[in-house]
């Protein structure tokens, strides 16, 4: 057994990091409240900021839904594939390449001379290049691509824990594939799905690089607004307050999901 003194010594470096992290969070709230709550009243009373807030929530929600719809079939396929490791490389490599590089790839793909537009023109779908880049559609597409691997891994881990005999039992008892999926596979993998959703929702609300590069100047999100507030307007107080609002928004969206997820996991655990 390791003594308590040794344990404290072992934990010290991490404790230092935790303290530093706590300080930054306190510092953030402190620098936003230099004039009390005045800045929050101003921000939340500003229709422009309210629009940005609503847009951020909508874009993050659509991105999350798109990740769930695209990620589930892939996770299902991976959970049953014999060459899982090989396919996993295709999921994990894009995940770990810098966001800025992946977003750049979408700039090349979606630009007026990009592959998407040249293909559309070649097949005669459109006479002149259509505008995809610098629209909210491009932002959703880019964010979906950036966060999809998180969703796939979260769902996959849930599917791999699932007892396959339950599915076999369902099939033997005469259920169709679809019925088995609806009644057995899907309900048992919902915790992973919700976990993935909360992760993507959280990250999408705080994104900066992808909305700045793929979105137009008109369609700002909270993250891009914070960035411009710091580096173009140099208003630290407003930027900090926006960051606190962003944090609160993200937590309001994510905490209910986490609670539902925890409750479902406990229920599944009890049923086992």
């Amino acid at each position: 057994m390791i003594g308590s003194g040794t344990r404290a010594l072992l934990f010290a470096p991490m404790g230092l990091l935790l303290a530093a992290f706590l300080m930054t969070v306190v510092g953030l709230v402190h620098s936003s409240a230099a004039r009390g709550l005045a800045v929050y009243v101003e921000l939340l009373g500003d229709p422009g900021i309210r629009t940005v807030l609503v847009r951020t929530v909508i874009i993050a929600t659509i991105t999350t839904a798109a990740c769930a719809v695209l990620g589930y079939p892939l996770a299902l396929f991976l959970s049953r594939s014999r060459n899982r490791n090989l396919w996993l490389i295709l999921v994990i490599s894009p995940w770990l390449v810098s966001i800025v590089v992946r977003t750049f790839g979408w700039m090349v793909l979606l630009g007026s001379r990009g592959l998407v537009n040249t293909t559309l023109q070649a097949v005669g779908a459109t006479p002149s290049p259509i505008r995809i880049l610098f629209t909210p559609t491009a932002v959703v597409l880019g964010l979906t691509h950036v966060f999809l691997p998180f969703m796939v891994i979260a769902i996959l881990s849930s599917l791999l824990q699932l007892d396959r005999r339950l599915e076999e039992a369902s099939r033997i008892l005469g259920a169709t594939r679809w019925q088995t999926f609806r009644a057995v596979t899907l309900p048992l993998s919902v915790p992973g799905l919700i976990g993935g959703c909360s992760l993507v929702l959280l990250m999408a609300t705080g994104a900066i690089v992808t909305p700045l590069l793929l979105g137009g100047l008109r369609d700002r999100m909270l993250g891009t607004q914070i960035y411009t507030e710091v580096f173009q307007v140099f208003n630290f107080e407003r930027a900090s307050a926006m960051a606190v609002i962003l944090l609160a928004t993200a937590l309001i969206l994510v905490i209910p999901l986490r609670l539902v997820e925890g409750r479902m996991r406990r229920r599944l655990g009890a049923a086992r």
Binding site: L18, T24, L28, S240, A250
Partner: peptide
Amino acid sequence: MILAPLLFPHAALGIAFLSW
């Protein structure tokens, strides 16, 4: 507490580290 930084949107973390 160790996993807490994962719960913070990166845009908020950026400005938090900057102010410090």
